[in-house]
Design a protein around this nucleic acid. Structure first.
Lengths: 335, 335
DNA sequence: GGTGATAACGCAACCGATTGCATAAACATA
DNA sequence: TATGTTTATGCAATCGGTTGCGTTATCACC
């Protein structure tokens, strides 16, 4: 394949001149630029990015870390779409995207350090679950910009991140349910360990306050993100005297369990029981009835994380900041 | 960060010597090798892969293409797992993995050509859906090894590929159903456009022949991979005089529809109706009852595709070949 | 016509590795 | 002792770009 020397020779100029026309230097006359461009086309030339990397000390590559622990959990279908969002922006910048997985439980930084030390990456996007202080230390030490997917919690220093606006999303779901006439709304979701569940619960509570409803703690259930727990808690809730007439599930698996419970107790959905969960389109649409959800534009989430990363790459002075992606209600059949 | 010169200086040798010890040349004395290694540790040195790439004319990177059209279809959760399988082998080889998406409908080769021309990739793994003849032409032209995920169909030349053994998988599912006592087994699946469905149908038919059953064409329904079509075809099948007592669904979405149909007609699963579909663990496990499936080790599929790719990279004489990944039956509740 | 400014380009060093060839020392052999 | 081998290492070119600095030609102006 043709290299810069071939182009220079064919155009009767030095490689410097070719390089400058590629990089659009003003000190090359228009005539020579055009001649060089036409030679480049003839020879089917494209610059060797490896060589470019060596001189410019940039890899033209960013890395997406995925958490293998999440792989089998609820996040799975999300991450795929996030990746596409990231890709879109990365390729727009003429960078390429490396993926690598790490385990949040094993606290293993080796892959990322290996990539950095080999000068293979200019920036990193990684789930907050992976962002241990040891990880931050490494990234800072080598001066590699990074952005977290998900709001990190309990960190001393500030970092860049993007997350779904879980609180507002749930508030909006509540307002939607109120408007539909539901009055006694419950909440099923884990809230101790998972930040996003906590935020969703916050939104649930703040919407109740806003609407002058009092918070009934019996309506709030800590519940793992599984069909089984969703089912059990729902059965339990429905056997009480004072039942909810609608429920917000922090996850679609929970909603599946809740729907099953309603079926067994012959409650009609959405007439007797409204249900809203968070979006996992595949599950929401295959459910019967289909689940009304808080829709999260995860593609946008990925895109924004990449944008933030490039801001840091292009301007090292840029200060770290968080960004919340807003949600909408995707009306299906359960509310 | 320390480079090879720093190491050479600190160890009192030339960069050649350092390079040779890194690459384990036999012509360096053990004593100097040890000294150099200890200096490397002291200085926290690792070789700059970019520079290595430039001299060795290898990018130490392979690319995984994903088909954005498939993104929203059944393959989605598969690809994620395939990616992990690929990753495992790629990082074992001390390569890194680039991902890029292409659309099978738009027939757009630009990203891949851009990566190749920029010398950013040494090999490509791509879904058969992307493997148009134009794509092959490009890959051959630049002499880039590639492996298809899925058996390509209608190509003139031979290429390397890995695929699930769909035929044998379905045969095994049939034998399993026979053993369970089912005698009238139907098949729901699309078989015109999708090779994997055709193969599954082949397996269905060959198992019937093997067991001396005759093929009842009314029991074979062309059916898109959706819950809706699965439901309709199942209702239709169940309203006939001669009903099946078990059914094989080429996809889990179909199975969801079939289960719904059984519920409405008050058929007990698995007593009155056995159901086996192909694996999508998330859907299979959230279904009620949980779906018995033909399990596909997609991680292994990815791993094997990467292995094949590296065989081609390491030995350009290596001839292209296909590889089938065998399946197993994952017994859950529907059969 | 001499001087200075400006425009357009080339020279050569450099980025961090690899490698063919040369070389020096140590050792063996005649 | 002179010569041939072997072992261990260094020199310098090379991969394909980039860039500071120098050079040449052209033109304006006095």
């Amino acid at each position: 394949m043709a290299n810069i020397k071939d182009v220079a020779k064919a155009a009767g100029v030095s490689t410097s001149t070719v390089s400058r026309t590629i990089n659009n230097s003003p000190s090359i006359s228009l005539a020579t630029k055009e001649r060089i461009f036409s030679v480049m086309r003839e020879l089917n030339y494209s610059p060797n990015m490896i060589a470019k990397s060596l001189t410019n000390n940039k890899s033209y590559t960013v890395t997406l870390i995925v958490d293998v622990e999440d792989e089998k959990s609820y996040q799975n279908p999300f991450f795929y779409e996030i990746m596409h969002g990231i890709e879109r922006h990365v390729y727009r910048k003429e960078y390429s995207l490396i993926v690598a997985n790490l385990s949040s439980t094993q606290k293993n930084q080796s892959v990322i350090e290996w990539l950095i030390k080999g000068k293979r990456t200019d920036g990193v996007i990684l789930p907050a679950s992976i962002l241990s202080s040891a990880m931050i230390e490494i990234l800072r030490k080598y001066n590699i910009p990074f952005v977290a997917i998900g709001e990190p919690v309990g960190l001393k220093e500030s970092v860049s991140w993007v997350d779904v606006d879980n609180k507002k999303g749930t508030e909006n779901a509540m307002y939607y349910l109120f408007e539909k006439g539901y009055r006694n709304i419950g909440f099923l979701g884990l809230n101790k360990t998972q930040l996003f569940s906590r935020k969703r619960l916050e939104g649930y509570k703040s919407a109740l306050s806003d609407e002058q409803h009092e918070i009934d703690n019996d309506f709030i259930r800590e519940c793992m993100n599984t069909k089984k727990e969703g089912y059990q808690h729902m059965i339990d809730l429905l056997q009480r005297d004072h039942r909810p007439d609608a429920i917000i599930c922090a996850d679609s698996h929970i909603a599946f369990g809740a729907i099953k419970a309603c079926g067994e107790l012959h409650l009609r959905i959405p007439e007797d029981m409204g249900i809203i969960s968070y979006d996992n389109s595949q599950l929401a649409e295959i459910s019967d009835p289909e689940i009304t959800t808080v829709y999260v534009d995860v593609f946008e989430l990925g895109l924004q994380s990449a944008k933030q990363l490039f801001e840091l790459i292009e301007d090292p002075q840029k200060i770290d900041q968080g960004l919340l992606i807003s949600t909408s209600i995707k009306v299906r059949e359960t509310a």
